[in-house]
Design a protein around this nucleic acid. Structure first.
Lengths: 152, 152
DNA sequence: TTAGTAGTGAAAACGGTTTTCATTTGCTGC
DNA sequence: GCAGCAAATGAAAACCGTTTTCACTACTAA
C-alpha cells in the first residue's frame, strides 16, 4: 500500500481514496507534533487556531479514516465514547497504560497480544486479525498523590 | 459486597443503590438465559416481548449500571459504539474472540492481562486497576466459508 | 396511615460521529 | 486555455446509543 498525493484516478471504492488529501496532510501535521492522543475535536480546534482556512470537522473525520486505513495513524478506544488518534510507525500499533486520575497515558513498548496470537490460533482455531487492548489504573505520580492526600 | 433485595435504606450515593431492584432482576433474568452478548436495546426488546409491564429503556440502563457495579454483569466494548453486557461469575471477567464475519464470540478461559499485571507494575510503576481487551478475527467456520467462496 | 426514600418511565437533552447534498477544487485530455 | 470530471470539502441535518430531567409511583419503616 503506497501513500500518494491527492487527486487523480482512484481505484478504491471507499468513502474516500487512500491518498493524502490536503485536509489529511494538515491533520497528519497536527498528530505529528502531538505526543498525546487527540480526538477529532482536538485536532479540529488545533487547526482552527493556526490555519487561515482550516478544514471542517467533517473533513477531519474523513481524513482520520484515510490515515487509519493507510496505517499511518491508529485510533484508540478507551470506552468513553470518544475515539482518539495518534501517529504510529506505518503499519504498527501499540497499547497504552492510561492513568485514571491524571488521564496521561504511556505507550507499551510491545504488543502483548501479538505474541499470543499463535497460541490462540492453535487453541481456538481462530484467525486473529485485530484487537483492542487498553490498561487503566494509576501512574506513579498519582499513586503517591493519593497516598499523601486522603486517598481515593 | 453483598447483593440484597430492593428497597430499604441505602448508604451509597450513586444514581441508584447497589441493590437488586425489580427492574434489575428482570434484566438479570434475560442475561441469565442468554449466552450471547446483549445490548441494552436487546434486553429491552426481549422484555417487551414477554413481560406484561416491561421496564423502560431507562430502567434497563440503570439496572445494567447497578449489575455491573455489583460484579454480576460485565460490560463489553467492541469499539463500535454500542455497549454489550453479559453475566459473569461474581467479581470475575473474561475477554472474547469475536468473529468479524458471523459476529459470534467465544470467551477466553483466562485473562491475558491479569498475569501481566505484576510485570507492568514493576516495569512502569503503574497500578493496574482495569483493562479492555477484545480480539477480532475469523472463527473456524468462517475461515472455511471464505476459503471455499471467493474469499474476502 | 403517614412519611420518606428509592425506583420508574416518557420525553428531552446530549455528544460524538456519519450522512446528505450542493459547491469547490484541481486534474486530464483536448 | 478550456471543457469535462471525479474527488474533496463544508455546513447542516440526521443518527443513535446513552444520560438527564422531572413528575409520579411504590415500597418500607415507624
Amino acid at each position: 500500500m503506497s501513500v500518494q498525493g491527492s487527486h487523480g484516478h482512484s481505484h478504491g471504492k471507499g468513502p474516500q481514496s487512500l491518498r493524502l488529501t490536503k485536509g489529511a496532510k494538515k491533520v497528519l501535521e497536527v498528530l505529528e507534533r502531538t505526543d498525546e492522543l487527540s480526538s477529532a475535536q482536538d485536532i479540529h480546534s488545533a487547526l482552527r487556531n493556526e490555519e487561515d482556512s482550516p478544514p471542517g470537522l467533517t473533513t477531519v473525520y474523513r481524513s482520520l479514516e484515510s490515515l487509519v486505513q493507510l496505517g499511518l495513524v491508529q485510533s484508540v478506544d478507551f470506552g468513553d465514547g470518544e475515539r482518539r488518534y495518534e501517529m504510529v510507525k506505518p503499519g504498527e500499533h501499540h497499547h497504552h497504560l492510561v492513568c485514571e486520575k491524571c488521564r496521561n497515558s504511556v505507550h507499551l513498548d510491545q504488543c502483548l497480544v501479538q505474541q499470543l496470537e499463535e497460541s490462540i490460533q492453535a487453541k481456538y482455531k481462530f484467525e486473529v486479525r485485530g484487537h483492542i487492548l487498553e490498561i487503566f489504573g494509576l501512574c506513579e505520580q498519582c499513586q503517591q498523590a493519593m497516598a499523601t492526600a486522603g486517598k481515593k
